[in-house]
């Protein structure tokens, strides 16, 4: 293993525009191995778009992006990977979505096996071992043979996390993964994410869960109107914001941030 300060993701001046609308306006971010970065901000601020730029689900219009040793310069021609190259780039990055997006024609186990089997061409028996381990880790060992429609939202999201982890990604992206869940199911998903963080998984998390940001984040990024308006250590940004826009956004969550952990 290399030193703990190894840079896993480095974005510089990342921009994404749709026609004349610019959703992300020059965002820079550096994530070290094992770090948890939480991105917060009002809805429509571009935080999800920024996240989707990192695994190139959205193609940035300008800036540079480095993931591991792969550097992409969106200003240069032919720098953006295509086809199989693009697929390989994404295979190193795990992503979990708001709507879970499990494959409905596969069981929980098959969902978790899908990446290793289809993308990595791993043998089924080997992939099953990996998948069963991960299902156990997210607390769903006994649900392996259930189809997504027979699982609760929280269970589906935990399967989705296991599915992404099965690719042994270098970094995990979480895009508002608890926003579609009933309140009583949010906790089980956040617990899994906390466990991943404790295990040293490098994570970028877009969320509205301020308590999670406070407890888990090494670095908090506050975005507004496509730009980073504040960035720093979690307690500084969340409890003593210097930017008025951050302060006004956070005031809506004060009760949740205020309760210090025991």
């Amino acid at each position: 293993m290399t030193s703990s300060s190894e840079v896993m993701v480095k974005a510089e001046g990342l921009r994404k525009s749709y026609g004349t609308v610019e959703a992300v306006r020059g965002v820079s971010l550096e994530v070290d191995r094992g770090q948890v970065v939480v991105v917060i901000g009002p809805s429509g601020c571009g935080k999800s778009t920024f996240l989707r730029c990192i695994n190139l689900l959205e193609e940035p219009s300008a800036g540079t992006l480095q993931v591991g040793d792969r550097l992409i310069d969106f200003g240069a021609k032919h720098s953006m990977p295509r086809g199989r190259d693009l697929a390989r780039f994404r295979a190193r990055i795990g992503m979990v979505f708001q709507q879970f997006d499990l494959f409905p024609h596969m069981t929980a186990l098959q969902n978790v096996m899908s990446g290793p089997v289809i993308v990595k061409k791993m043998s089924k028996s080997e992939a099953e071992t990996v998948a069963r381990d991960l299902l156990a880790k997210v607390g769903l060992a006994t649900f392996a043979d259930r189809f997504p429609r027979n699982l609760s939202g929280g269970q589906q999201q935990r399967v989705a996390i296991a599915r992404a982890m099965a690719m042994a990604p270098e970094i995990m992206l979480f895009d508002e993964v608890t926003s579609a869940l009933d309140p009583e199911l949010v906790g089980e998903v956040l617990d899994v994410m906390k466990q991943l963080a404790t295990d040293g998984t490098t994570m970028i998390v877009v969320t509205h869960e301020m308590a999670f940001a406070r407890d888990v984040a090494d670095q908090v990024l506050v975005m507004d109107a496509g730009q980073v308006v504040e960035q720093g250590r979690a307690e500084e940004v969340l409890l003593r914001p210097t930017n008025p826009r951050t302060a006004s956004f956070l005031s809506r969550f004060h009760s949740t941030i205020g309760e210090r952990k025991a």
Binding site: N55, L57, G83, R84, A87, R88, F89, R90, A91, R92, I93, G94, M95, F97, Q99, F100, D101, L102, F103, S114, G115, I118, V119, A160, R163, A164, M167
Partner: peptide, 23 residues
């Protein structure tokens, strides 16, 4: 087929052919 199925497959690293055939 829901857009989420396409993005989840792509995010896992599937190529166009793989996601078509398997998902």
């Amino acid at each position: 087929i829901d857009k989420g199925q396409w993005q989840a497959s792509r995010a896992l690293g599937m190529t166009g052919g793989e996601l078509m055939r398997h998902i």
